[in-house]
Simulated scan of single mutants.
Amino acid sequence: MSPRHHLHESTLMSFAAGALPAALSVVAGAHLESCPHCRQRLHLAETVGAALIDRTQPDVPSPRREVLRQAMLAQLEQAEPGGEGRSREPAPALRQPPRECPQADPDYLPASLHPYFGDSLRSLRWRWIAPGVHCIRAADMPTLIMLRIAPGKCLPMHSHGSSELTQILRGSYNDALGLFAPGDVADLDQDVEHQPVTAPGAACICVSALDAPLRFSGWLARRIQRFVKL
């Protein structure tokens, strides 16, 4: 799997800073698991961010800095219930480094999706929303959805209220931006209007995160939107 469509620089910087909205962060994580190129760019973004933070810190001599650090930790311990006299344990990592998907199982889902959809495509229970289109919405994150679209389907022309991230898991589609195949991510904003058409062969399965509802051009799609909430 060699993705040809990647995360935008601004998306990677927001992800590195922990500032990307939760649903978008899940999809970005799914892409990073399958894309060595974006993982390398993420590492660079984290390095640059750390350097910028370090440059904004006051220039305090090392001995004095350690004294301040110990004083801060002591205050944090006293502020926690039962913190006095309790031994400190290392805090768990906020974000585990992305892992490659096991190639032996073609139905394996990226690890970032497991809390919302499980670990395999085989266990999913799809909901019909339109002819040839099925959907699953994450229970705890309604702006995170998985779509299964039959081959040869032409989706309505639409733009975006804000940001959209879509990671292709299986199958493919074409639009004005090109061919999106497994491993590719569509990193879109409000300036993009497109009409995806799924390719012949296998159904296109993708996971999407939206910052705002889609903007459909056709009146029928706008009426249906009230029921499918996309």
Rank of each mutant, 00 (worst) to 15 (best):
S2K: 13
P3G: 11
H6P: 06
H8A: 15
S14C: 07
A16N: 07
A17F: 01
G18E: 05
L20F: 06
A22N: 02
L24R: 11
L24D: 07
S25Y: 01
V27R: 03
V27C: 02
V27M: 06
G29E: 06
A30L: 04
L32G: 09
S34M: 14
C35V: 03
H37G: 06
C38Q: 07
R39D: 09
Q40V: 01
L42H: 11
H43S: 14
L52G: 00
R55Q: 15
P63W: 05
V67I: 11
Q70M: 14
A71L: 13
A74Q: 14
A74S: 13
E80C: 09
P81F: 08
E84S: 11
G85R: 08
A91E: 14
A91P: 13
P92C: 02
Y108M: 08
Y108V: 15
L109I: 07
P110G: 12
A111Y: 10
L113F: 10
P115C: 06
P115Y: 03
S120A: 06
S120F: 06
L121D: 08
R122V: 03
A130M: 01
V133Y: 10
C135K: 13
I136Q: 13
A138P: 12
A138C: 10
M141P: 04
I149G: 01
I149C: 11
A150T: 03
G152T: 04
P156H: 08
H158R: 05
S159I: 00
L165Q: 04
Q167S: 07
I168S: 01
I168N: 01
L169W: 09
L169T: 04
G171R: 08
S172Y: 04
S172T: 02
A176F: 01
L177D: 10
P182G: 07
G183V: 08
V185E: 04
V185I: 15
Q190N: 12
Q190M: 05
D191I: 00
V192M: 11
V192I: 15
E193L: 04
T198G: 02
P200S: 05
A202S: 13
C204V: 02
I205V: 15
I205A: 01
A209Q: 06
A209R: 01
L210N: 02
D211G: 15
A212S: 14
A212C: 05
F216Y: 15
G218V: 00
W219F: 12
W219Q: 10
I224V: 13
Q225E: 15
Q225I: 00
V228A: 11
K229C: 10
